[in-house]
Design a protein around this nucleic acid. Sequence first.
DNA 1: CTTTTATCGAGAAGATTATATCGATACTTT
DNA 2: AAAGTATCGATATAATCTTCTCGATAAAAG
Lengths: 213, 213
Amino acid sequence: MLFVSKDPVVSRSTLKRLPLYLHLLEALLAQGVECVSSTQLAREFNFNPTQVRKDLEVTGEVGKARVGFRVAGLVVRIRDFLGWNSTHDAVLVGVGNMGKALLGYKDFEKYGLNIVAAFDKDVRKVGATTFDREVLPLAQLPKFIKRTKVHIGILTVPAREAQPVVDLMLAAGIKAIWNFAPAPLRIPAGVILENARLTQSLAVLTSHLTHQN
Amino acid sequence: MLFVSKDPVVSRSTLKRLPLYLHLLEALLAQGVECVSSTQLAREFNFNPTQVRKDLEVTGEVGKARVGFRVAGLVVRIRDFLGWNSTHDAVLVGVGNMGKALLGYKDFEKYGLNIVAAFDKDVRKVGATTFDREVLPLAQLPKFIKRTKVHIGILTVPAREAQPVVDLMLAAGIKAIWNFAPAPLRIPAGVILENARLTQSLAVLTSHLTHQN
DNA sequence: CTTTTATCGAGAAGATTATATCGATACTTT
DNA sequence: AAAGTATCGATATAATCTTCTCGATAAAAG
Ligand SMILES: NC(=O)c1ccc[n+]([C@@H]2O[C@H](COP(=O)([O-])OP(=O)(O)OC[C@H]3O[C@@H](n4cnc5c(N)ncnc54)[C@H](O)[C@@H]3O)[C@@H](O)[C@H]2O)c1
Ligand SMILES: NC(=O)c1ccc[n+]([C@@H]2O[C@H](COP(=O)([O-])OP(=O)(O)OC[C@H]3O[C@@H](n4cnc5c(N)ncnc54)[C@H](O)[C@@H]3O)[C@@H](O)[C@H]2O)c1
């Protein structure tokens, strides 16, 4: 779509398919499979083989005619491309149901994400330790972001609180926001916003079920 | 993309933008705003006005030149279109961190989703009550689905457990699956699969941060 | 009452994304 | 060794999605 600055123009669609391939490839790697063709991968997901090849092209891994791609090579290349071989620190704001689920998710480290601190404005939550991380008062958020130079902000507050918290984050220098609240956010160009809105996902299900009858 | 059976009248992109409009429109409605133009809506999201009009067209609501669309009308039409004015019952399997967050989410009823029961294979979790719902043993899942004719299955088990649980659901007659596990699932045509994969969403963030430097 | 302006809906044009085609290549089979 | 075949990468074509253009229309301004 938009949002990429220079030449490495990779579509958001491709970007979202890469983790799908990766998960499968890691399973194949664990099974000891050495090579896999675009045809095989495509069959797993009901994609088109050409599309798979185009997607994998962005990682730089080249395949061999009649053989396919090296599984181990693809795994490394995709992880590198996605930035999952390095660590991206993040702060989380809103230690409610969703916030706690994210804080408790061990596998984020596999995806290069490291939640270093959590914040809440509810004094009853502050001070408690949630999954080994202390919950800090919201007031300390700006200073913390500036001091630790953390780039990612995870937003798990109620919708009406989302924009004010985002403004705090932006003022403190956050570069990317992962938003779970069903609220339209205003952010300046240059900052990446990714909405993990479950309601959007749900819309696909409920509308299909509705129009099927 | 693919996976819609007959005439895929509405694109998935449009489908995912409708909830965005809806959330904003509901806020406007609460403020007493009566009409809104595609231009105004577009500005809020940095979309193109024509795109907004095309999206809204699918709901059947017609606008008035020089005035725009009735906010109240759009809210009803979008909710109807998405199936959010009726109730879709669902079962949830895997009462871990994510499963509990979903069980505790009060607003799902606004989105037409009603989680009627939760299942887990861990005997320590079974019997406990999580957010007013008893956790049932996995063994009871098939009978429960058949008896209650529930259509939606929510999958919050570890990735390696995903396919076996899906197979159970399918055999019992589930029509739509909302999957949170990072695993490629095999499902027959006619069943709707929607992946709420946070790792796909995360890929957008981490890859951008990586390639910016 | 006429002109101006903002917006609509329909259709055309443009951009992006997905798929098909094809020569080259590397492995298998005969 | 030669023939056959699956797959690659490159390029062309097709499909889809987005944006532009324009005549019609409804409200506001003159
Ligand atoms: N729980 C889910 O399954 C789910 C599903 C879809 C969307 N969401 C969205 O995710 C967000 C969080 O949902 P939840 O279920 O965790 O809600 P929740 O009410 O359980 O938690 C919200 C937390 O944010 C804190 N908070 C409120 N305002 C704050 C502020 N200004 N600064 C810092 N902290 C603040 C609250 O104290 C609370 O701890 C909501 O926007 C919700 O709509 C949640
Ligand atoms: N927690 C998160 O923030 C998060 C983020 C992204 C993805 N996910 C994915 O969501 C899924 C659940 O994550 P989680 O953090 O809740 O994990 P979790 O380990 O906390 O919970 C998993 C639950 O599933 C149950 N379970 C395991 N096998 C089962 C089976 N065959 N049948 C029924 N129940 C079974 C376990 O007993 C446990 O209660 C995982 O696939 C995870 O990768 C979670």
